[in-house]
Design a protein around this nucleic acid. Sequence first.
DNA 1: ACATTAAGTGATT
DNA 2: AATCACTTAATGT
Length: 211
Amino acid sequence: MSKESFRKNYSYIFEEELLQEIESLAVYKEFKENDIIIDIDNYIVSIPLVLEGAIKILRQDNQGNEIILYFIERGDTCAMTLSCCMGQTKSKIRAVAETDTSLFMIPKQKMKEWLTKYNTWQEFILQSYHGRMQEFLEALDTLAFLNMDMRLLKYLRDKAMVIGNDELTTTHKEIAEDLHTSRVVISRLLKGLEKDNKISLNRNQIKVIDL
DNA sequence: ACATTAAGTGATT
DNA sequence: AATCACTTAATGT
């Protein structure tokens, strides 16, 4: 089962030789929704390749406040983990399974080796960094200009995308915690979006109509 | 019927 | 945008 979904998501990215090497070395793992995959201060010994499902990456400050950085989905890896891997440091982020998730863990020595050995691997890692860098810049913009409505829109879009469903089962409180704002603010912004017919609201459920 | 939790709203800073 | 105080609505026991 793990092998098939790996092939399905990665066979167009990597060459045959690398695919086989990953299959022989990677450790297969499964997580249930809301399981913590990597926590703050965990030592990073391997990096994940997402096979099925989606993961939410959170940043936590010294006071224990959390804020969402980004989602990763199948066919992707986590740039922050790569970064920790290269620097031999403890994890600066928490990774939580957004849906039931399965993944391959690649030992970090291999991940370094492959950078020179396989062109497609290097390309993959660089692409991942590139994509995330773009997102960080966007995130910085919205934070700098305090555009909570923009951040919320992006959050809803991303969430609907990673779970592959436009009916989100969540509460305003949860969203507020992810975006590090208050529940009241989220409720008001969501109400506004509902008025513009972009979403419809029910208890514990938000349906995305047009974002 | 009652308690609990989610969501809506006006007023204030 | 955040916070407070309060109301209303939905859901569980």
